[in-house]
């Protein structure tokens, strides 16, 4: 790869109080590709992905050490504004979390806190975001109905639309399909495949087939360390580490 990485992580440690949960992670995440983080439960992949947009800041006693650069700027730098950072780095969570508001207001949320008031502009972006999240045709006649009336898969796509509306550069997805049935899951996966033309996507998944289907690059985490990362095909068919091979072939985890 000739391009500079979109996200560049060097010697990143993370602590919850005295417990060290990430040990010296170094990883380059390329722009406009899907990078999947795999590994057994509790291996630190969620902690890692939540460090990229500093979502862990809200946990007391949690702190990171080392550097995470986005386009060369340190996420944990003293002059980094976390609100601005999170606008550039969108996130979709494991459990879909639509606000108890209308579908329209959910997608408008990020735009409105950014100060957008123009109704026509809002309408446009909301339609575009819902279309990109492959939800527009299902909800266009009930934009002002409560988002909580949607099905689980629709809610998750709404959360994706909500994240896309503010036009982030990076989209972090923390097991976005783990609570969904296979049909909804395949819709989300198709969506990820389409979105990677425009966004840098980092996805945490427990599901190895999913990582194999959607990712370009795959990183394998184990006990808070990055064991191996590389091209998806290499990781799944010809990994260097024995541990990676055991995991991707289902011998443990």
């Amino acid at each position: 790869m000739n391009d500079d990485p979109k996200i560049s992580v060097r010697d990143f440690d993370f602590f919850y109080g005295a417990a060290k949960v990430l040990h010296g992670i170094s990883l380059d995440i390329p722009a406009r590709k899907v990078t999947a983080l795999i590994g057994p439960s509790g291996c630190g992949k969620s902690t890692f992905i939540r460090s990229i947009n500093r979502m862990n800041d809200i946990i007391t006693d949690a702190r990171g050490k080392g550097t995470i650069l986005i386009d060369g700027t340190d996420v944990y730098g003293s002059d980094t504004d976390v609100v601005e950072l999170r606008r550039r780095v969108g996130m979709v969570f494991q459990k879909s979390n639509p606000f108890p508001k209308s579908i329209y207001d959910n997608v408008a949320y990020g735009l409105r806190i950014g100060g957008m008031r123009n109704k026509r502009q809002l309408d446009d972006i909301i339609e575009r975001s819902l279309t990109r999240a492959a939800l527009w045709h299902e909800v266009k006649d009930r934009l002002h109905a409560s988002a909580l009336a949607l099905s689980g898969g629709q809610q998750q796509r709404l959360c994706i639309a909500r994240a896309l509306a503010v036009d982030p550069e990076i989209l972090l997805m923390d097991e976005p399909a783990s609570a969904l049935d296979p049909i909804a899951t395949s819709k989300i996966e198709e969506l990820i495949y389409e979105l990677k033309d425009n966004y840098t996507i980092v996805i945490v998944t427990h599901n190895m087939q999913q990582a194999a289907r959607v990712s370009d690059r795959t990183a394998f985490f184990m006990l808070g360390r990055l064991v191996e990362e590389g091209d998806k095909n290499t990781i799944f068919t010809n990994p260097k580490e024995k541990m990676t091979e055991d995991y991707v072939t289902g011998r443990f985890g």
């Binding site: 979502m55 609100v83 999170r86 606008r87 969570f93 459990k95 979390n97 108890p100 806190i113 950014g114």
Partner: peptide, 24 residues
């Protein structure tokens, strides 16, 4: 999750409280 959702969209803490958590 609602708080996290609001913060992840770039809401300040106060904004998240008054626009999402209190209404809920």
């Amino acid at each position: 999750g609602l708080r996290e959702g609001a913060l992840a969209l770039g809401a300040t803490r106060g904004r998240a409280v008054f626009s999402v958590i209190v209404p809920a």
